[in-house]
Design a protein around this nucleic acid. Structure first.
Lengths: 245, 245
DNA sequence: GCCCCGTGTGTGGTCGGACCACAAACACTA
DNA sequence: TAGTGTTTGTGGTCCGACCACACACGGGGC
C-alpha cells in the first residue's frame, strides 16, 4: 500500500469514483459508517477525508434524514479557493504583492477579452452594480462590497469557472487588508469618486469594444488603490501589449 | 457562537493566531490533545481541522517525538492548489477547457513579462531542461515530465508564489488528460520535434527581449497540443455566456 | 572518560463505541 | 381525512484505547 494514511485511502477512493463516473455531481456519498466499513477504515478517518472535501468545496453535508441529508457532490470551487488563499496569506505563504499582481494579470486579460468579444459585451450585472454604487450615502464598507461584486461579475461574464473561482479567492484573501487600508486614505469621498469614475470608464471601454483602453483603465484602477494605501507596491510592471491573436 | 461546528472553531483559532503573529512559519502547533483541551473540543475535531490545513499545504505533520515531530507551519501552497484543482476537475466543477484557457492567460503574460524585464531573462533552469529534452531516447512520459518542469520553471522565474502555485495546480489538474491524449497524436516523434522547436523559440524570444514573439510562441505552443489531441477546443475564443436568469 | 544501546515517554495515527440534535418517513390517533 | 407523535437513520462530537514511531535519557561496556 502506497498510502499508509487511512484518510488518504478514502480521498483516493472518492476521487477515483469521481473520475470513473461512479460518482456524479448531485449524487449522495455513501454514509460515513458505510464508507468506513467498505474501505476497512475507522469512521474518524472517513470524517477527516470528508472534512477536506467539504472545505475544498466538493461536497455539502447536512445531518438529519431524507434526500437533503448526507454528503452530496456539489462542485463549488470558489469556497475552497478562498479558504486556501486566505490561509496561505495568513501563513505568509502568499504575499499581498503577489496576490495583487496575479489579480492584475487575470483581470487585465479578462476585461480585454470582454471588450474584444462582441458576444460578451452585454455586461448587465456589472452595469447594475455600477448604478448601486452611485448612491452617495454608502458606507465605505458597503461601497467596497459592491466594488468586489462589480469586479467579480466582470470575471463571471467570461464564463470560465476556473477564472471565477481564482478571482474570488484572490479577492477574499486580501479582503481584510483592503478594509485595513481604508483609514490610510487621505479622503474617502475623493477616493470613492475616483473609483466610481474608473468603474464607469471601464464599463464604457468594454461596451465600446476598446480593449486597449479597458486594459489601461483596469491597470490604473487596481494599482491605484494599493499604491494609495501602501498595501502593495511594485505591483505594476512593464506596460502590457496587445495579445497576439 | 456563529460557528457551531467544532472543527471550524479550531480552524479559526489557528487562522487568528497566524494573523496576529502568535503563530509563525516554522513554529510548532500545540499538540492535538493540548489544542483540544484549550478550545474545549474533542481531539477528533482538532484532527479534522489539522487534516484540512495539511491538505491545504499549511502544515506538515510527523509522528514520533522531538523537534521534527508534531504539526509545523510550512506554507507550501502548490500542494493544496493541486489537490483542489485536481478534485474540482474530477467533480466536473472545472472543465478542461477552462483550465487550459486560464493557463494560457497566465503563461502568456508570464513569458511576456520575462521577456520585457531584463532582470528576469537569466532563465537558467528552463535552459537546462531544454537541453535534457533534446535527448532522443526519451519516452513520451519522460518528455512530458520535462515539459511540465520547463513550463513551471518559467513561471517560477517570475518570483510570484501565487502564480507558481496556481500554475502548478492547473498543470497537475489536467496531467492525466495530457497523458491520455498521447495515443491520439498522429506521430509522437513529429510532435516531440515540434515541441522542442517551440520551446527553443520561446527561450530565444525571452532571451532576446521580444515579448510579442514570446506571446505568440507560447500561445501556439499551448493551443497546439490540445487542438492536436482534441482535449480542448475554443481555448482562444471566449466561451458563450449563459443567458441571464 | 567516552560510546553504545535499551528503555522511557510523548507524539501523531487509527479505531471503536457512545451519545446528541436533527429531519424525514412512518404509524397511529382523533 | 387531517393532524400528530414515534421511529429511524443521518451527520456532529466526544471519549478512551491502542499502535508505531522518534527522540531523550540513562545505564552498562570499553
Amino acid at each position: 500500500m502506497v498510502e499508509s494514511r487511512a484518510w488518504q485511502v478514502v480521498l483516493e477512493r472518492i476521487e477515483h469514483d469521481l473520475l470513473s463516473g461512479t460518482l456524479q455531481p448531485g449524487d449522495h456519498l455513501p454514509g460515513e459508517r458505510a464508507l468506513a466499513a467498505d474501505l476497512g477504515v475507522g469512521r474518524s478517518s472517513v470524517r477527516e477525508a470528508l472534512r477536506v472535501l467539504e472545505v475544498l468545496g466538493l461536497i455539502r453535508t447536512a445531518s438529519g434524514s431524507g434526500p437533503r441529508s448526507g454528503a452530496i457532490i456539489v462542485a463549488l470551487p470558489s469556497g475552497g479557493m478562498s479558504a486556501l488563499m486566505r490561509l496561505q496569506v495568513a501563513a505568509q505563504g502568499f504575499s499581498v504583492e503577489d496576490i495583487v499582481q496575479t489579480r492584475l494579470i487575470l483581470e487585465t486579460e479578462t476585461v480585454s477579452r470582454l471588450a474584444e468579444n462582441p458576444d460578451l459585451r452585454t455586461i448587465h450585472t456589472p452595469r447594475t452594480l455600477l448604478g448601486a454604487m452611485e448612491s452617495q450615502n454608502l458606507s465605505p464598507e458597503e461601497f467596497l462590497t459592491l466594488d468586489a461584486q462589480f469586479h467579480l461579475s466582470l470575471t463571471e461574464a467570461m464564463g470560465n469557472h476556473v477564472l471565477t473561482a481564482t478571482m474570488a479567492g484572490l479577492r477574499s484573501s486580501i479582503e481584510d487588508y483592503v478594509r485595513a487600508g481604508l483609514p490610510r486614505l487621505a479622503s474617502w469621498p475623493a477616493t470613492a469618486t475616483r473609483l466610481r469614475h474608473e468603474h464607469r470608464a471601464l464599463a464604457d471601454a468594454i461596451g465600446a469594444g476598446d480593449a486597449e483602453r479597458a486594459r489601461s483603465v483596469i491597470h490604473d484602477h487596481i494599482t491605484g488603490y494599493y499604491l494609495e494605501t501602501g498595501l502593495a507596491e511594485d505591483v505594476t510592471a512593464t506596460p502590457v501589449p496587445e495579445p497576439a491573436s
